[in-house]
């Protein structure tokens, strides 16, 4: 009965599957190295595409390189106005190892990580919900005698 219900949907499914497979075959049928496949438009697209990618990221570099300077300038001006000292150089000469050690110390402090546990009672009371499967009453073979 079920086999007889081949509907129009089914036909569509078969057609879809066959067309997908055919598309794959079609893709492969003309594959093979041939330098003459490469047209001038492909070379133009490659050069143009890569140049645009490069230029857009170059633009990002230029903007953020100058933005940092601009913001730093404002900060320095504000500090100077307030009569405070400004650092001569952004580089404080701190090595990567020192920064890593300081960062780890701060992280541990925030996480309150330590070698010894605080005095916390860790016994957890387990409560299991009622189930006739583990009920003692149902495990009795006869009613208890009082």
């Amino acid at each position: 009965m079920f086999l007889q219900n081949i509907s129009s949907d089914t036909t569509k499914v078969i057609q879809d599957t066959l067309s997908t497979a055919a598309a794959q075959d079609d893709v492969f049928s003309h594959l093979g190295f041939n330098l003459s496949n490469l047209g001038s438009s492909d070379v133009v697209l490659t050069v143009l595409g890569y140049s645009i990618v490069f230029l857009s990221l170059l633009l990002l570099y230029i903007v953020f390189f100058n933005l940092a300077k601009l913001l730093n300038l404002n900060l320095k001006k504000k500090l100077q106005k307030a009569g405070k000292q400004t650092p001569a150089d952004d580089d404080l000469g701190i090595s990567g190892e020192t920064i890593a050690a300081i960062s780890m110390a701060i992280l541990l402090d925030f996480q309150e990580a330590h070698d010894f546990e605080n005095t916390v009672i860790t016994i957890k009371k387990v409560q299991s919900s009622y189930s006739p499967w583990n009920s003692k009453l149902y495990g009795l073979r006869q009613n208890p005698k009082y």
């Binding site: 003309h30 496949n37 490069f54």
Partner: peptide
């Protein structure tokens, strides 16, 4: 940006292979 070279090089390679 420089590492995107692979995308465009492979584009050329795939074209020569018939895609």
């Amino acid at each position: 940006a420089a590492a995107q070279l692979g995308i465009f090089f492979t584009y050329i390679a795939a074209i020569t292979l018939g895609f």
